[in-house]
């Protein structure tokens, strides 16, 4: 399962998703194609209900496309994939486990030996030191998200999927988390697919931003962001490149929101 250089880490090939049941018949995704290069950071923005979460579920194999194909690290996705890390909007922690043991759940489920040291590294890296033994309800929302992030990174996944991971955080904590995530991405070289509602977040973090149309979702435009690798938060926000990209995305989203 080695990936030759040049092969996309994620390859989404004209995928459509229809949800059919007795009561509803929804087309969540119309025709989406997207390639993500290894080590690339791609954000997905779009109006609520346009199928962003659905797209991540397709990549992880939690959902099967109605038509089209998804490849992950070279293999066609047919069922839940184990070679990814997933972070949901809600931290989804086990409330009877301490922060550290929540992170280690990943290792226990995989039968990974000696994950303790790696867990401690991640705890250090995300600034959770001193809270290893705290239960989820004793942690703040931002800390819970960091635990979820550590858990998703524990097994060093080649692809990290994040679905609005910072949606519930206040602006300042969110900025801190963005800076941290950027650093982690640079240090680990992981391929990241991030769904977000924040334009600033998407521009700050990504190589490319995918703007989607309202439901049924399709790719409206892909914006290349070319920010310097060293990214101080406020300096980056002040860059002309940043504001141009952000304004463009806002315009695209605004246009799609108007009837």
């Amino acid at each position: 399962m080695t990936v030759t250089v040049g092969t996309a880490a994620v390859e989404i090939d004209s995928v459509a998703v229809h949800f059919r049941s007795k009561k509803i018949d929804v087309t969540a995704l119309r025709e989406v194609s997207l390639d993500v290069a290894p080590g690339e950071f791609v954000s997905i923005v779009g109006p609520s209900g346009c199928g962003k979460s659905t797209l991540l579920k397709l990549v992880s194999g939690l959902l099967k496309p109605s038509s089209g194909k998804v490849r992950l690290l070279g293999d066609v996705v047919t069922g839940p994939r184990h070679d990814i890390g997933y972070v949901f909007q809600r931290a989804a922690l086990l409330e009877w486990r301490s922060a550290r043991r929540n992170i280690l759940l990943q290792a226990e489920m995989r039968g990974m030996p000696d994950a303790g040291k790696r867990a401690d590294e991640l705890i250090e890296m995300t600034g959770l030191r001193g809270f290893e033994d705290a239960l989820p309800h004793e942690l703040s929302g931002g800390m819970q998200q960091r635990v979820a992030l550590c858990r998703a990174l524990l097994h060093r996944p080649r692809v990290l999927l994040m679905d609005e991971p910072f949606g519930a955080l206040d602006a300042l904590t969110r900025e801190q988390m963005n800076v941290e995530l950027h650093r982690i991405w640079r240090e680990t070289g992981t391929t990241v697919l991030l769904v977000t509602h924040s334009i600033a977040e998407s521009v700050y973090l990504s190589n490319r931003v995918v703007v989607m149309t309202p439901r049924p979702g399709a790719v409206q435009e892909i914006i290349d962001v070319d920010l310097p690798v060293e990214r101080d938060y406020s300096e980056t926000m002040a860059l002309p490149k940043f504001s141009t990209a952000a304004a463009h995305i806002r315009e695209l989203l605004g246009a799609s929101m108007r009837p």
Partner: peptide, 21 residues
């Protein structure tokens, strides 16, 4: 939580481990 169960399935522990843990 269904999200928790989905997460578990990406961890590849199988039904028994998911039940126990």
């Amino acid at each position: 939580d269904t999200e928790m169960l989905e997460l578990a399935s990406t961890m590849g522990g199988g039904p028994l481990k998911t039940f126990v843990k």
